[in-house]
Design a protein around this nucleic acid. Structure first.
Length: 118
DNA sequence: AGCTTGACTTTGA
DNA sequence: GTCAAAGCCAAGC
């Protein structure tokens, strides 16, 4: 550690951790903001996960379309290049989306905490 | 410095 | 089942 090191990397770690987790979500499966936040040890910071995804544009390898809210609703679709991109990418992976709602969400849900600890 | 907003979730009525 | 309110914390004004 040098004396010129940054002292504000903590929040960056949070963002980075979110990206890493989202990358672990397998194609054809989805997870929620709260599930990611919980895996990071801060279940109350689910909003920050959403905010972190806002910065996911800097890392195109992050499959942000596989992250929805706890209802399986495509709440973040407006933040993609086009409002339909999120749904289209999900459908291309075999997920059925109806009126911004993922069908059979309960069965497609990928619990971060559970799957990683497995 | 404070106040508002937001890709959320949980709890209580 | 729905609806309202609170908690969380970073970014923008």
């Amino acid at each position: 550690m040098s004396t010129t090191q940054k002292h504000s990397e903590k929040h960056q770690d949070f963002f980075k951790s979110v990206f890493e987790i989202v990358k672990l979500v397998p194609p054809g499966r989805v997870t929620s903001y709260g599930s990611i936040a919980k895996a990071l040890g801060t279940p109350k910071s689910s909003r920050m996960v959403g905010w972190a995804m806002n910065a996911s544009h800097s890392d195109k390898s992050v499959p942000a379309h596989r992250v929805v809210n706890r209802n399986g609703l495509l709440t973040g679709k407006m933040h993609f290049a086009t409002p339909t991109e999120m749904q289209e990418r999900l459908e291309s992976e075999g997920i059925v989306v109806k009126n911004d709602q993922i069908q059979d969400f309960k069965n497609l849900f990928w619990d971060v905490q559970k799957e990683i600890l497995d």
